[in-house]
Computed example of a mutant assay.
Amino acid sequence: MTTDSAPAAPLDSALAIVEAITSLAAADRLLLALDFDGTLAPFVDTPKSARALPEAKAALERLETMPSTWIAYVSGRPLSSLEIVTEADADALLIGSHGVEVRFGRDGVSLDLSVDEQDKLARLGDVLRALVEANPGTRLETKPVGYGVHYRNLESGTGEDIVTAASSAATAISDALTIRDGKDIIEFSVRGADKGDGIERLREYTDATAVLFAGDDLTDEDGFRVLRPGTGDIGVKVGAGETAAQFRVADERAVATMLTLLAEARAARV
């Protein structure tokens, strides 16, 4: 497993993350909060076909059978999509739409959009749909409280123009939108929430004494910032880029290796 530390931490070896994971395995109440795309599952051209790597899935299935251990998926995907790709059962803990949607087992959370939010959402959809139709290679994703404009299939260097055009069109609707710039996607929401909010709600719900959060995208930085390293929390950045996480791993396969190590270490302790 190739690792190096994020800039904020002095540790820079594979041994450091192994030691941290081994220590985390001893937590009284352990919460694993995990991004999905680019963390557990490789990116694919058809989003609904994404699945976690078999090694990662096997490690998570083992961990979720252990006492005082919770697995949660924290994603920008809508819950309806996240349920499919994670193959979640009725008791799964899911945070969708960057924290806006929450499903704690069988108890869902209603969005209850106001009339003003519904109006903004409708107008936002109209302008972004027109933009995407005028720019082949882009794709509009409908989310519960907003939209995402994907541009991964555009020629290199042309995505910035789409981001600028989409931002201009969206802010003409409202200057109070929540805007997130992710990997080859720009997202606009009529209601604000982030992955950090989702992790805090998961921590409260599970009464976790330690949290592991892993993610690869810019939007995952909100999650890293709410972690409490002094109490045993661990943040793991997947791939390149500046980050607030303590540790970094190279890719999804390294995440699977890390989870396998954690499963083995926790099984020996609980």
Rank of each mutant, 00 (worst) to 15 (best):
M1T: 05
M1V: 07
T2H: 14
S5V: 02
S5P: 01
A8D: 05
A9I: 00
L11Y: 15
D12R: 01
S13F: 00
A16T: 00
I17M: 00
V18I: 12
E19Q: 00
A20H: 00
T22P: 06
L24V: 09
A27R: 05
A27M: 08
L31H: 10
F43W: 11
F43C: 01
D45W: 04
A50N: 02
R51Q: 15
L53A: 07
E55Q: 15
A59Y: 09
A59K: 09
E61R: 13
E61F: 08
E64P: 08
P67M: 08
W70G: 07
W70N: 09
P78S: 03
E83P: 00
I84P: 01
I84W: 07
T86F: 03
D89V: 07
D89A: 13
D91R: 12
A92H: 12
L94I: 10
L94K: 09
S97L: 05
S97M: 04
V100G: 05
G105S: 11
R106M: 10
V109I: 12
L113D: 08
S114P: 11
D116K: 12
A122Q: 13
A122N: 10
R123D: 10
G125A: 07
L128F: 10
R129Y: 09
L131K: 01
N135V: 13
T138V: 06
T138I: 03
R139N: 10
L140C: 09
K143G: 08
V145T: 15
G146P: 11
G146H: 07
Y147A: 02
Y151R: 05
T158I: 05
S168L: 11
T171N: 12
I173A: 00
L177R: 00
T178D: 14
D181N: 14
G182T: 09
G182L: 07
E187I: 08
V190G: 01
D194C: 08
K195D: 02
K195N: 06
E200K: 12
E200W: 03
R201E: 14
R203N: 03
R203E: 06
A210H: 06
A210I: 07
L212V: 11
F213P: 01
F213L: 03
A214Q: 01
D217K: 03
D217F: 06
L218W: 06
D220N: 06
E221V: 02
G223Y: 02
V226F: 02
V226C: 04
R228H: 13
D233W: 08
V236S: 02
K237D: 04
G239Q: 01
G239K: 01
A240C: 04
G241F: 06
G241W: 02
E242V: 08
E242W: 04
T243D: 00
F247L: 02
R248Y: 00
D251H: 06
R253A: 14
R253H: 10
V255T: 06
T257S: 14
M258L: 15
M258V: 03
T260S: 15
T260R: 12
L262V: 04
A263V: 04
A263I: 06
E264S: 14
E264H: 13
A265W: 08
A265C: 13
